[in-house]
Simulated assay, not measured.
Amino acid sequence: MRAGIEAGFAGHIASGVTTLCHCWQVTRRDGVVFASTDHDVALHFDGVTYRANAGLSAQALAQTSGLSVDNTEALGALCDDAIREDEIEQGRFDRAEVQAWLVNWAEPSQRVLQFRGSIGELRRAGGSFRAELRGLTEPLNRPLGRVYQKPCSAVLGDGKCRFDLSTSGYIAERVIEAAQEAQYFRWGAFLGFEEGWFARGRLDVLDGPAAGLWGMIKLDYFKGAERVVELWEPIRGPLPEGTAVRLTAGCDKRMETCRLKFNNLINFQGFPDLPNEDWMMAVPRSDGANGGGSRR
């Protein structure tokens, strides 16, 4: 089927008289799809309708045959019924999947996929936005392999850690009683978890206009009779009173925490017995141990 589409498109190009346009499809990580075209009427293929006059255009695409990163930029206008400024601010388009098609608008079955990748840096100003598009080779720039360090290198609950966060006692769901600047949360009655239990964990918004957003927890402490949870950065969305949130226990990556808090030492991904820098300075001496420190 794909070979037939490409053959038909090649035949259209070879005819010398073309009816071409561009189509873009943006699929966010929450499953919301945005599709647009620079043609003057909407197009439909693969079960997706590409809206016309959506204010989206693209600059020249740089592509290579090696492992260098393919990249381009998409330019567009912010409008309420398409890509909104508040959703960009909330990070809902971060790492969204992008597909760019060159299409024969007179026969949409004749088309070729020009670019596939994800959204990188997003900038907005004056009612418009500029999105960096990164190709499929972008992940090859990430370093691979383990790091030799004392703290654990795994993320709590991932495939290396293997800890089941759904285990009772590691997740708490509450409704917001008081929130200041979408960064400081207070509860009058929040028992059953010791102080600091959720520090280095995360707070997920479960419903309301900010549903799907989350933040990393910086501090978790008692202030008088209140429980206070402070995030590193504010949630970038409205959080009215009564919004449901989920708090997940945090991990400071130490071996003692892995053993005592999570009982998961068998999956600890650090190297706690690595010698420190003082050990590297140690030299033999006749009068006792030399730990590398200064002599007194």
Rank of each mutant, 00 (worst) to 15 (best):
L165M: 12
G91S: 10
R186I: 01
E138P: 05
A62T: 14
A74H: 08
S168D: 11
A182T: 13
R95T: 12
T167F: 00
V98F: 01
A131M: 11
A62F: 08
Y148C: 10
V98T: 03
F129P: 02
R84I: 03
V103D: 01
E85V: 06
E73V: 15
L122H: 01
A172W: 07
W101D: 01
V69E: 13
A178Y: 07
F193K: 09
A131N: 04
R130V: 05
F185H: 07
Y148M: 14
E121M: 10
Q149W: 04
W105P: 01
A106Y: 00
L140H: 00
F185N: 03
P139Q: 14
Q110N: 11
S168N: 09
G91A: 09
E132A: 14
S128C: 12
W101C: 03
L165S: 01
P139L: 11
G55M: 05
D158G: 05
S109D: 01
S128I: 10
R123P: 00
A96E: 05
L122N: 02
G127T: 06
E73K: 15
R84F: 01
N141I: 06
I83K: 01
G169P: 06
R174F: 08
E132D: 10
C79K: 15
Q114W: 08
P143L: 14
G145F: 06
V147L: 10
A100E: 06
S118E: 00
N104Y: 05
L136H: 02
L75G: 05
R95W: 12
A106H: 00
F163G: 10
P151A: 11
I119N: 07
F163C: 13
R95A: 14
A60N: 12
W101A: 04
F115I: 04
V147R: 10
A179V: 15
E177A: 11
S168Y: 05
D164F: 00
V147M: 06
G120V: 03
L56H: 13
A189R: 15
D80H: 10
E121A: 11
G145M: 08
T72L: 15
E87S: 12
G76W: 02
L122E: 05
R95G: 07
V103G: 01
V155R: 13
C161F: 05
P108K: 14
R123I: 09
F193P: 07
T137Q: 03
E85M: 11
P108L: 08
V98H: 02
S57W: 12
L102I: 09
A62K: 12
Y148D: 08
R174D: 06
C152V: 10
D164Q: 01
A189E: 15
G117W: 03
L122G: 01
A189Y: 10
L136N: 04
I83M: 08
I83Y: 02
S118D: 00
L78I: 15
R134W: 03
K160E: 12
W187E: 11
G169E: 05
R130G: 07
E85C: 09
F193N: 09
S65K: 09
K160R: 11
L191D: 15
F190Y: 04
Y184I: 15
A131G: 06
L136Q: 09
R84W: 02
A106S: 06
S57L: 11
N141Q: 11
A172D: 08
T137V: 07
A172K: 12
S128N: 13
T64S: 10
D164W: 00
F93L: 12
W187M: 06
R124S: 13
L113F: 09
D94C: 10
A179S: 14
R142F: 03
A74Y: 09
A82E: 08
V103Q: 02
D94N: 15
